[in-house]
Computed example of a mutant assay.
Amino acid sequence: MNSMQAVDLTSVTRHYAHGVTALDDVSIGFGAGTFTAVMGPSGSGKSTLLQCAAGLDRPSSGRVVVDGRDLATLGDRKLTLLRRDRIGFVFQSFNLLPSLTAAQNVALPLRLAGRRPDSQQVRRSLASVGLAERMHHRPAELSGGQQQRVAIARALVTRPAVLFADEPTGALDTGTSREVLRLMRDLVDRQSQTIIMVTHDPVAASYADRVVFLADGRVYGELQDPDAGQVATRMLQLEASC
């Protein structure tokens, strides 16, 4: 496990209109090659943390460094390039184009970047999620879990420094969720992929190396090598105190 920080937030605050403070002086690092789950009650700032860390939203104050780049020093074009080349995204909805095959969906980020997709690169990305043999199937011919794995392969095809996942198992049944979570755990263990995942599910969080808890826009502690019971107990305590 690498001790370097893939993502580092220092004194990050994010204000919105009407006096809403979504993040309040948050300082936290995410080590390269680690799997972190971010949890907290509704309105705790989880999504804002993810958006600021991924360069999708600019903080009102503070510093965000991703893959050694200070996002505040990047103009819109350079920030777009960084997100395209060094950051991967997986969401609850798979966001696959129904008319394209699995391979074509995975190749899409390369095409959008004006690069000619390398068929071997696309195949390797699908193989990394166990779907090389389904590369010519369209989304309608795949299960929900397989569609999410295609979405993960698409996020990984540019070999990003960080993979951000926002409720990646939220639309899946229990068995399929575990399948996707085992895959994500394997990506960290075998390929040293850095993953930061927002989730509300204590079982999903138990696949991570650590869980960071947010409430009212602030960090309220963390758990290392968590189990689902510990996470659930901490969440109950956090919700009771809010």
Rank of each mutant, 00 (worst) to 15 (best):
T21M: 11
S47H: 12
M39S: 06
M4I: 13
M39A: 08
H15F: 12
T48P: 02
S3F: 09
T13E: 06
D24F: 08
S61R: 13
G33L: 02
G62R: 02
L9G: 07
D8L: 14
G29V: 03
D24H: 12
S44T: 05
T36G: 01
A17F: 05
D57H: 09
T10L: 10
G45Q: 07
N2K: 12
S47F: 13
G29Y: 05
G33M: 03
N2W: 09
M4K: 15
I28Q: 15
V7K: 02
D24P: 03
A54R: 04
S27H: 01
S27K: 06
V20W: 08
S42A: 03
A32F: 03
V12Q: 03
R58G: 11
A32M: 13
D24G: 06
Y16P: 07
V7E: 10
S60H: 03
G19K: 08
K46Y: 12
G55C: 04
D25T: 08
M4S: 15
S61F: 06
G45K: 07
A32S: 15
T13W: 07
G55S: 02
D25H: 10
C52F: 11
T48F: 11
A54N: 06
F35W: 12
D8G: 00
T34Y: 05
A6M: 06
S11K: 12
V26R: 00
R63C: 05
L56F: 14
R58Q: 14
A17S: 14
V38W: 02
V38G: 01
A53C: 02
D24I: 09
M39L: 13
P59S: 06
M4A: 15
G31F: 01
T36W: 05
L49E: 03
S27F: 02
A17C: 04
S44K: 00
D8S: 14
F30P: 04
T21W: 13
T34S: 15
L23W: 10
S42T: 12
S42W: 09
K46S: 10
C52L: 04
T13Q: 03
H18E: 15
Q5P: 07
L56K: 00
G62W: 01
A53W: 02
S11W: 05
Q51E: 13
C52I: 07
R58K: 15
V64P: 07
G40L: 10
L9H: 00
S11Q: 14
V7F: 04
R14Q: 14
A32I: 11
